[in-house]
Structures are given as C-alpha cells and as structure tokens.
Nucleic acid binder design. Structure first.
Lengths: 331, 331
DNA sequence: TTGTAGGCGTTATCAT
DNA sequence: ATGATAACGCCTACAA
C-alpha cells in the first residue's frame, strides 16, 4: 500500500486539499505549511499516482514513441535525442516496441498526450478512429495519410550522393537497396538514383542495381555479393545503414578494398557510420535536426490541436568520411 | 473528449455498470445485452481508460523497462525477446531511456506492476524506499543489493574463452576491456582473465592488458591500437561487443588480419556478433535464456511478492564463429 | 490561508 | 440480469 496525499495530510495535520496545493506549489498556501508538507511527503516516500492525476487533469505530460524495429539500429541516436528534447520541455517519454496498433492502443489507455511513430518500410495502416482521438506524428513516408508526417527528401539525398561521386571522377555507379514495390521510402531512393544518373547523362545498367529485398544487414550482404561479382562499379550507393554493414562484409570477402577499389556512400546520417570498420561517407538528415523538428511538431500539435500540420520534408546533407575517394588518384 | 462507458450506456439504453460488466465479459450479463453493448462500444470507438482502470484495480498488467544506454546496442535483441515473452503472458511493456531514478519514479506513477533495470557499468544507486514499493529486477551486477539481480558468471565466461584459445594452441593471450575500478561487471571479467591464465600456467605480461577506460567502440579502438602496437599477442579477448567493434577497426588500420594474424573472442553472446565485418566468436549467456529468466523471475516476483528472489547467476556459453583460429596451421 | 465537496472513468458490492 | 453507489487518488472550485 503506497502513501497518498491523505497520509501526508494526516501526518502533517492539514487537510488533503492543502497537501495537494502544497505539492503543486500553489501560491495559495503559506510557505511554512508548504515546507512542512513537503518534508513529511519526502519522509513518507510519497510518489504521486499518475493514474489519479491524469484521470482528473486529462493530461499526462507524456508522449509515447512507437518503435517496433529496435533491431534496426539506425534510430537509436534519434531516440536518445528526442528523449532529451522532450525532457527539456518537461514531458516524459515512454517507448513501446510493439506493433503500431497495439502500442497506440496502450498509449491511449495510459492517457499519453501524443504519440510518435517510427515507421519502417510499408506504411502502418491505422484504424481511422485512432488518429482522430490523439495527436499523432510519424517519422515516415509521405503519402495520403491523415496524420502528419516528418519525412526526408530521399531523392535529394541520393542526388547529393551521386553528385559527390561524380565530382570525385566516378562514372560507373551502382545502387544497392530494397526495391520491394510496397516500400515507398526505399523506392524513392531508388528513383532518386535513376533520376540523378539521368540528369548527369550517365546510363544505369541493369546489373548495376542491387535489390536487397529486405532491410537487414544480411539482405545487404547477399545482394552486395551478387552485385559486386557480376558488375565492377567504381562507386556504390547503399540505401541504409544496415545494408551498408552487409556491403562492407561482402566487400571484405571479395577482397575489394574500400575506398581504394570501391567508393561507398551510405544512406542514413547517423553517428554509427563513424564506428564501422570503415568510416562511411553518408547522406541523410542529421539526427539533431530530425529530433528537433519532430519534437516541436508534436508538442505544437498537442498544445494547439487545431494547428494543421501536414507532411514536412527535411533536407538531407552530405557527411564526408573515409569511404569515398577521388578516382583520379588511382588511374 | 473521448468516449467512456457512460456514453455507451446512454447510447445502448443500459446502466454503465452493466456496460462495465459486458465489456469485461462477465457471465452476469445476458448474451444479447452483451452483444448490443459491444456493438455500440465498437461503433463509438471506445478505448478503455487505463488511468481509471488502474486506479481502482491497483494493477496495470504492465512492466517498465529502464534502459538508459540504448546506444549500446548489445541489448536490443534482449529487449525484443523480453517484450515477446511479456506479451505472451498478457502484460504490456513500456520502456524508458531516462536514468533509473527518474524512470522508476515515472513507472511507479504510471502504476506499473514491476520494473526491470538494465544496469550499465556502475551500479545504479536507488533510494531505499523505491525498491520497497515495487518489484524490481535488475540485469546487473551481483553485490549487496536489496533487490534481486540477474547476473552472468562473467569469470566463467572468460575462462571459457581462455580455454578455447589455449586449445587452439595459443599461449600469448591479451585481454582488452574496461578496467575502471568502480565497474564491477567489467572488473570481474578482467579478474577472470587473470585467474584463467594462472590456472593454465600462463603469465600475463603487463602490456598484454588493454584498459579501454570506457565502453564505447571508440574506447576500444584507442586501447586496441595502443595494445596491438606495443604487444604482439596471437589471441585477444575483448570485454564487450562495442569494444570489439573498436578492435576490428584498429586491427584493420594496423593491417592485422583476423583470424589469420590474430584470433579474437568477444564477450557478449548476441546475434549482432555475426553481422560484423568479421563474424566474432564470442562467449556469454544466450539472450533467449537471459530473457526467459528475467521475465519469469519478475513475474513471479509480482505475483508472489513474498517470494524471496536473490541474485541468480547465469551460465555462459561459447559461440563458435570465424574470428578464432588454430595457431598450428600457421606455424 | 485552509478546508469541504464534487467529479474524473472504472470496478466491485450491494440491492433490486 | 440489471442498476445504484461507493470507492480508487487526485485536483479544483467554492466555502469558511
């Protein structure tokens, strides 16, 4: 049986409504009373009951984050950053690794004020009544969604990568990534590649596209092995962090040195890029920017429920590391 | 304003207490009434309010997991597995990436039934009143804790690694890991190394121990570079997954091939070991076993609060992969 | 400045 | 089989 404000009230000889006020730092209570109450509260080891609190206030100052794919490590840094920002705004954040539907149901039950979804691959279809009952923001894929989305200009990102490689003197470029039709985010990247190549007047040979058919490192590994055996590009763009991990592994097995024999640029602008055996040059939106945008967007959605907040496209940047090298030097 | 059982009651022409019973599938309500209630509930898009529910029932069927170090990826697989098991037992799981104190305070506020802590490095000191008010289980370090701990027999793990390397013909072994005095878990590993070496009649030279002074890959990288330059072991044991990542990177820069020039065994028995550029042979408790043990322990603690549940030591296993090789072949 | 009372959404115990 | 009604812990008018 945990201690409640009534216990504090009894112990400190005031009414429990006074205790409530004192605990909430109301100006309506005499400083010394407040002090005494706080002391006995502390002494008794009081912890407020959110269930009761939320029940009456209809607010929890908590946001829920739906993150089913924790094994895809590309997002951990983003999660940490978001938690930081949310904390700074005096909110709590709780995570769920369940599927979106289940997680959101739970969050609503717990009376969170808003939820963020990390969508992976195909868009999560939510029951239409869900997003009407609570502010929802997704780090996901633009489309005809009913809830607002923070998305990345994927095409632009790939354009950046292609341009950089061309500047380095490459003309034989390959792309490796998931081309499963249902996954808009991934197909955007692939389309961006075709587009950028065409703009540059370069042709894309059929066997210079590697379809991983999945997003795990192993998918990347298999596809990279296939690709690097049949085709001999001087530069390769990889669709995600995890896929890049597979590419590195494949290259190693095939005794292809990076960047000496092959320049690689990876999608996903995250710190982990620097901790790979070969530091990967990458393109993507820096996570600080993403985090900032997501938090401010969701909080404004919570605090001004009327604010119409549609899809927002974030601008990617190129992060230079050690996996892409000028071709000239090695001619 | 979300829909409550009173709305359902009004809409379906029964009292709200009947609605409550119907929703909870009580046998005390006529099937047709139940059906009607369920229908209108569904029509209205009703979602139960946990705050209210928990308030009266004093149970939430939810456990909280404290996981401040999400950037240390060694644990993601464990988290997923735990979530799976917990779900199978009809519980929810929510995560927090805040510090233990804050996270637990929040969890208690949300009325979770129990909490798990992933302790990283130094032991989290909790206010003594915390763990008396809620079942707590830690994946942590044995010691004079007041709450139960699931720990790993770290020494044994290192012993396994050492024996394996000796069987492969190695006698010049090094250990690299965090030797910061405060961190019991890490120092256990180091002590295990000394012990195993002594048992085998091998001497440990001073410069064959690399102190990373931290647990990030970069710490491992720096220490490995130092170690591999000054000493020339034929085999190396690394204290954690992340440190191993750093070791791989250092070895690559120094043009040391694994396992041809150097055999490596890493601590941490997790799937990610197989996704590194070089698949690492490793020692540690398989995560399925850990997850299983943790979930059953916490749930039994929740359901039988009297069950005294002290520190439990899990037995590590050796997982053979490709980073450790017989020395003979290369003499 | 403090105390009283009503209500938040739900369950559980009574009556009916 | 159904309906009042009293909790659960807290907040917030309003009254004293």
């Amino acid at each position: 049986m945990s201690v409640t404000i009534k216990d504090i009230a009894r112990e400190s000889g005031v009414s429990y409504s006074t205790v409530s006020k004192a605990l909430n730092n109301s100006p309506l209570v005499k400083p010394e009373t407040k002090k005494k109450v706080l002391e006995t509260a502390n002494m008794l080891g009081y912890t407020p009951n959110f269930a009761a609190k939320n029940l009456v206030s209809k607010k929890s100052r908590t946001i829920g984050l739906v993150w089913p794919a924790i094994d895809r490590i590309a997002l951990t840094a983003l999660v940490s950053k978001i938690n930081e920002l949310v904390t700074a705004e005096n909110y709590f954040m709780i995570l769920s690794v369940d599927e979106a539907d289940k997680a959101i149901g739970m969050f609503i039950g717990f009376q969170v004020d808003g939820v963020m979804i990390f969508e992976e691959g195909r868009e999560t279809m939510l029951h239409s009544d869900v997003f009407s009952s609570i502010p929802i923001l997704s780090y996901g894929v633009s489309g005809d969604h009913v809830y607002p989305i923070i998305d990345v200009n994927h095409k632009k990102a790939i354009h950046l990568a292609v341009s950089h490689l061309i500047e380095l003197g490459h003309s034989s470029l390959s792309y490796i990534g998931d081309a499963t039709p249902g996954d808009k985010r991934q197909t955007e990247k692939l389309n961006g590649f075709y587009e950028a190549m065409e703009n540059a007047g370069l042709t894309v040979h059929e066997n210079s596209i590697g379809n991983t058919k999945g997003l795990s490192w192993y998918d990347g590994y298999l596809a990279a092995k296939e690709l690097l055996k049949t085709s001999k590009p001087t530069a390769l763009i990889s669709g995600s962090y995890d896929i890049s991990v597979g590419v590195l592994r494949a290259a190693k097995e095939l005794k292809i040195r990076i960047p000496e024999d092959l320049s690689v640029i990876s999608y996903d602008n995250i710190p982990q890029m620097a901790s790979l055996e070969t530091e990967l040059t990458s393109v993507g939106v820096p996570i600080e920017q993403l985090a900032e945008k997501m938090v401010t967007s969701l909080l404004s959605l919570i605090e001004h429920p009327d604010s119409i907040n549609l899809t927002q496209l974030m601008e990617p940047k190129l992060a230079l590391r050690k996996s892409a090298k000028s071709l000239q030097k090695h001619l």
